[in-house]
Amino acid sequence: MSRYDGFREFMGAYGGQLSRFAYLLTGNHHAAEDLLQTSLTKVAARWPRISGYDQPVSYVRRIMVHDHISGWRWRRRRPENPVPDVPEGSVPDAAESTVRRIVVVRALGQLSPRQRAVVVLRFYQDMTETQVAAELGVSVGTVKSQTHHALAKLRAVAPELADLLHNGSEVQA
């Protein structure tokens, strides 16, 4: 039995979830695939240890977030591809929702990597502020502040979404 068999099983179960997470963090397929491969290479190398953790998928997500943030620093803010892929099979009557998805991903691309991670963890992964803080290794106050700034920026850079993002008062912790 290979030391990587368990890792393959893990990916069979969580590959889709982690792919979607990578896509939201990066905003395009190429970068998502790169991020996932980079992070999973580290995970596979340490799989015997990671597999013993209570929540391996949470640990993998954490590696992805940190790789995403540190990769951004390393690349010295190279421009991200602001154009999400147009879904295959797009049809005209789905154009509005397609444009909305593109606007969402493009707006996320305007956030800093850390803000983006906060938004994805907080709202896509349904984590509490405390959980996000633990995931990122920052204080709860930092998460609150990053969330506030991220949402303000999302409304500003994606005025098309402002109404959708505005039909409530405050985000609950």
Partner: peptide, 28 residues
């Protein structure tokens, strides 16, 4: 708002593919 944003993110995430990088990660 959090429900709306979650819904937008869920929708956007549906554009993701399943990136088949498992074997590449093992090789790496």
């Amino acid at each position: 708002m959090s429900d709306t944003l979650k819904s937008l993110l869920d929708d956007a995430a549906n554009d993701a593919k399943q990136y088949d990088v498992t074997e590449a990660a093992v090789r790496g």
